[in-house]
Design a protein around this nucleic acid. Structure first.
Lengths: 209, 209, 209, 209
DNA sequence: GGGTAATCGAGACGGTACGTCTTGTCTTAGG
DNA sequence: CCTAAGACAAGACGTACCGTCTCGATTACCC
């Protein structure tokens, strides 16, 4: 399994920390693209080889640094109200995506994954998959409890929920804000369609004579 | 308006075409990142200055090349069935996002916009805005015709519709396929929620005792 | 002939000079080995590529620099007395080989040629061959004028004359001084042997009855 | 004397041999310059520190290896004919300097001494000085026996004899061959000059009436 | 229809960063 | 304490591109 990995026991914890800290600091000062391995090494007082020995790319270093900083959380609310739980989590995601420290770095990493499949896999495994799984689990419980239609695949529903957020994060156009969360939840929970004979209003089920 | 633009009359059409063709060819052979202005110039038999004179960045060249190739279309169906129109358009977008020629280039450009606001603006103006506008217009008509709830902002709805597609295009994880389009439309038109006393089923309004 | 060489017309004379000057300055400050292409480029305010474009190696740069500095001369005396002419030239060579500025650089270059045949060829063509030829020409004239035995190959005689000087320059041991020149000339002109019946004394030919 | 040297009793003879053998093998395979301490350590199955502990530099290792291989000999002929003794010894030196295994390594070491005084001293003490002393001793005897002019310093005469050989070994130009030995001996024993009234012919002393 | 000004291909230029290599020192674990 | 192994800080290597610049040599418009 770990046959190719160098013995981690030999690894200098001191250097590892210095590298991750320098990486984050540089990202803040000069942006993701402006951050170079050369500068990280210099900033950390470390030889370049020490970086190349333990990380395959600049993106991997920075992703590790983000993780280390514990900047995000996969934790999910678990009240009886799935919509409230989602709203809380999605809102905190929006807050992060609007954070002027975090957002450019995150966007830089996602950009890097477009041409670096290895980094993409790390991004998936370390950042995305756990959070998607947590969200999907919550949705699955909601389906079992009759709050959500059971025939929609929870993983796909996660994508429908978060897709619009990433759309605004990654594509130029409108600024991401919290209002989007409510709109998305509105649409996802109640639909945007007006089928004949059905009145769907968020929080206000059709009155019946 | 065009005060800053060089006199286009001077421009060598021959070179312009050679550059755009070389750019696309290189993108196919070596990917977006592997394509360099140096190589485009060499491949087109053109001086580097000729490229820098007319385009601000590699991304801009490649975006022009994509546009020139007429690879995408903003045209929208306009039948009476908004859902069918959306399905048709979104499906063709999915097809494009799955095209092994186009997708990596498009992803490369979007990646480049993460650190190049100027390119982002061009992407917005030339590719995204027109298509969003066309889609929003169609949605607006649907609202007027009573097929969609009128209180949802059409531009936002566009993002809810396309967000999941871009999510799969740009984030590592599940492969993009046409089934996603139907799921998204299902959820957007009918909602995924099961509010007490309301049964929302696509195409099958809840019967009542 | 010069088909592979870049068009010299494009070459920046300014950079060329700055590079050669920086190279020499660095050699003096930090020695031949301590001089790096990186430092030459930095010191000359020049991109490394500009050095690599025009010179194949550090040694070639430094040899050019030496030549440019006009530090040596192939000019040879041309009086009627070949021994005096040789003495003058060899003494000036000794002076150069003892020059604390020049000698370490020259030794460094010769050292470099031990593992760089290309540099060796340049050294031969640019520095050694012309001087050997000039010396050999002078010796040849002396042979024609009856001052030297005609059967000794002049090129080889050059090596016998200068060999001891280079021996002291390159091999650790005794310090090179001008006295060596006289000893060498003594031996070479009159021989060190005492053949029976022959008395060979410098400046005092055997008397004959 | 050996105050700075680590206690030799602790030294692993096994490692020492492996290092010297690996050093020579690498020199043959990749040349002097291509041989690195890193590779020697790897090739010998030895830690780098073990090399650094016992040798001050790569050159010192290789010189030790050469010595160990017993590739040269300081032994000198001791017949009544000094010229024959010199010829024999010098010819064997030429053979060595032409040996494609030995020569590049020897040239590499001499090159290294140009910038490494410590190595130069080792070269002098271990290789050169003993051989020069042996040769000078033989010359001194020849002087006492009346075969050589007594006023020429024997050590200097050694340099005159071997200088031309090293000239050809170290400077690019003509290939070293055995004929050089005879020419050198010719010149050194009989001189190359033609003083008026003196006829100096090797092996054919001037006839006397 | 000749002058002139901008564009063209070409590629040298000063730079920056890359990823690799080697150096000599330091650290760890085993004997 | 020596050993094998190899991580470490340092820094040069030679390469690749960047975006700017300087060349002549065409254009192609304007007078």
């Amino acid at each position: 399994m770990t046959d190719r990995a160098p013995d981690p026991a030999r690894r200098s914890e001191r250097s590892r920390r210095a590298i991750l800290e320098a990486a984050l600091a540089l990202c803040r000062e000069r942006g993701y693209d402006g951050t170079t391995i050369e500068a990280i090494a210099a900033g950390a007082g470390v030889g370049k080889q020490t970086i190349y020995r333990w990380w395959p790319s600049k993106g991997a270093v920075i992703m590790d640094a983000l993780n280390e900083a514990g900047v995000t959380s996969a934790a999910f609310g678990d009240t009886d109200d799935v919509r409230a739980d989602l709203r809380k989590q999605m809102t905190s995601v929006v807050r992060l995506m609007n954070d002027s420290q975090f957002a450019p770095i995150y966007r830089g990493i996602i950009a890097a994954t477009q041409s670096d499949p290895e980094l993409a896999q790390v991004l998936r495994e370390r950042l995305i998959a756990p959070r998607v799984a947590a969200c999907a689990a919550r949705l699955r419980r909601a389906q079992q409890e009759g709050q959500l239609r059971p025939e929609v695949n929870p993983e796909t529903l996660v994508e429908v929920l978060y897709g619009p957020l990433y759309y605004r994060l990654l594509l130029p156009g409108r600024r991401l804000d919290r209002a989007l969360v409510d709109t998305v939840l509105d649409v996802v929970f109640a639909g945007a369609g007006l089928a004949p004979g059905v009145t769907v209003t968020a929080g206000a089920p059709a009155a019946r004579p």
